[in-house]
Design a protein around this nucleic acid. Structure first.
Lengths: 192, 192
DNA sequence: CGTATTTCTTAACTTAAGTGAACGAGGTAT
DNA sequence: ATACCTCGTTCACTTAAGTTAAGAAATACG
């Protein structure tokens, strides 16, 4: 399990054994049961997540309805905006499956960053990459219809469609569960 | 004009006069005429932008149709994803109005960053902030209807609605120009 | 094991966005 | 001044998503 984390880090910087041990000494690893809520609307938090195994989900409750906006799975890193902006959260974070995560807070990051400046560099590269990636995702979302978005998801993250409840997928695609059902029926129709 | 840039930087780090002069010596400032294309689909680029005055626009051409995905105005910084990922651009960047920009490339950033480590820190904070900001924007887009998006834009960037052509605004909102016209008529109807 | 609950699908109807076409206002070029 | 073009709006029609409701299927739980 540790190795998943170190493989991820290795994409950005190379670590000495000393550095690896410093990270392990932080006790970052958490096992989390399916359905657990990691963060609630209105709460403040300092925690960043990295998914080693499983799936976590970001959702809002708007007019009593859940609106899912993101899923993070294996090898995904996520720092909630409310942590960056130091404001209460407007959304919930919960576990879609039994998961293994690393959970780190600002204090830990300050500690590691001051010991090993390398980490600062990694964080910069990582956030630039994530920003670029998200810009592309956002552009794809804006420029396509719900049906195209579904087909796109089928290409890019076929696992999600299997492991996540349909009604959560639907709001992730910007539509209602009924519309997703219909849309899928329509696609099957076309194929035949 | 310089001061707009330094005011922006001052939000993240404080600069000595030496550092300010080092920046000015890079000759970053560019005046660009309305309609100028700064980047075309298929081109590679190393340029990042900061808008001092005016407005630039990101758009794709999909099936022969322009799809606008972003506008950057005064005090906005923008590094295209294709610069981060070192791949050819999939989109165009053009000037909506006569504008004054700073244009910097990777070499300049490397030079400044090595002289003044401060800049590295600024870049990290900035990209984290932009990432958080964009996550929130994306969430708002996903969780709202075209009408809500328009009303939201009216609140947050009322200037855009004045200074940008309607058909560009429409695709920015994820709809066709005719739908935007209708939607606006509908809103006026409701008010009365 | 059986009951309750959640999840997914289907259907009928409503609402809003997409499409294609036409029109007028405003600007530009000749 | 005229012809041309872009832009925004309007309209009629089509298509797809929202809404409400019902029922089937899967899952959770006592």
């Amino acid at each position: 399990m540790k190795n998943i984390l170190f493989d991820f880090i290795a994409k950005y910087v190379s670590l000495t054994d000393d550095e690896k041990n410093a990270i392990l000494s932080l006790d970052l690893f958490r096992s989390v049961k399916k359905g657990t809520t990691l963060l609630e609307e209105g709460q403040k938090s300092e925690d960043s997540y990295f998914v080693l195994k499983g799936c976590i989900r970001i959702y809002y409750i708007i007019d009593g309805e859940e609106k899912t906006t993101a899923f993070y799975t294996e090898m995904d890193a996520f720092t909630p905006p409310c942590v960056i902006n130091k404001v209460p959260s407007e959304y919930f974070i919960s576990c879609v499956e039994d998961s293994i995560l690393t959970v780190s807070n600002s204090d830990m990051e300050v500690e590691i960053n001051s010991k090993f400046p390398k980490f600062d560099i990694m964080c910069r590269i990582l956030s630039q990459e994530l920003l670029a990636k998200q810009q592309i995702d956002f552009d794809e979302f804006k420029t396509s219809s719900p049906e195209q978005r579904y087909l796109n998801l089928l290409q890019k993250r076929p696992d999600l469609i299997q492991r996540v409840p349909q009604h959560q997928l639907a709001s992730y695609l910007g539509i209602k569960p009924q519309s997703l059902s219909r849309l899928r029926a329509r696609i099957l129709e076309k194929k035949s």
